[in-house]
Design a binder for these strands. Structure first.
Lengths: 134, 134
DNA sequence: CTAGAACCTGACGCTGACGTGAGAGACAAG
DNA sequence: CTTGTCTCTCACGTCAGCGTCAGGTTCTAG
């Protein structure tokens, strides 16, 4: 398939696909005229890349991880890398959860009708909720 | 306290603090010479801002939310905004979790000694794990 | 064979949250 | 008063992940 079809199937823009190739994340055969031709498996590949982007990994990190996922490498280093990224994601989840709880507390205050939502109430909340360092 | 001290206490750069003020997130009194002077409460304020940034909110969104947190406003609109942001965070957490599971599966494969980590195994994994659209 | 759609390679633009000087004023210590 | 440290205001630089022309080529349907 050509780039337009892959774009349609994955929901990713043509520009993005070319960018992925530029970053070494995606390869394509070329026709005599220079046009890219992809295997069907490229659809899954692109979805995988998108998922890793969604997990906030950089192109560089994805480039490092893909060989592991492709199972072409399986060294102690690659495994450590995978675990490190997983831990990073865990940390990020924890941070988001904390922020979510903060927001929830604020919402609870602002929605409880009996609460006056006074300055001191909120100050106490703020004082209690703050423990982020990153 | 002056800006350097606040920076030290919060772990945020001086430049970032000035940027927060520029965005309307943080206010400061000025000395006759034009230097910023902060209340002790600014420390918590900065931590709060940092937490919201960590939850991937933009300056603009934080600017909109802060009055709610300050409890100076408590309208149906402000409550809806808070809920919308909470939902956004929830979605992001869900996405991260999915990516984490993917990574876990890859790790499990690469660490199980009896597994050859063959191409087909990984292909099956990839085929099974792909369901992201955002 | 020819029109038009799809594709190609540069290359500049954009956004956000700051980093990084430059050049000058403010302020505490001796 | 002076030295040194902190602070001030511009204002340009950065980085990632693309968007968006521009100008030219390739492929496909009729």
């Amino acid at each position: 398939m050509r780039i337009g079809e892959l774009a349609a199937k994955t929901g990713v823009s043509v520009r993005a696909l070319r960018y992925y190739e530029e970053q070494g994340l995606l390869t394509a055969a070329r026709s005599s005229g220079g046009q890219r031709h992809y295997l069907d498996s490229a659809v899954d590949r692109v979805h995988l890349i998108q998922m890793l982007y969604a997990a906030d990994l950089s192109s560089r990190t994805i480039l490092d991880l893909l060989p592991c996922v492709d199972a072409k490498v399986n060294t102690p280093e690659s495994r450590a890398m995978l675990r490190a990224e997983r831990d990073r994601i865990d940390q990020q989840i924890a941070q988001l959860r904390q922020a979510r709880e903060r927001l929830d507390a604020v919402i609870a205050l602002s929605e409880s009708p009996e609460s006056g939502c006074t300055r001191t109430e909120v100050d106490a909340l703020v004082a209690a909720g703050v423990s982020v360092r990153s």
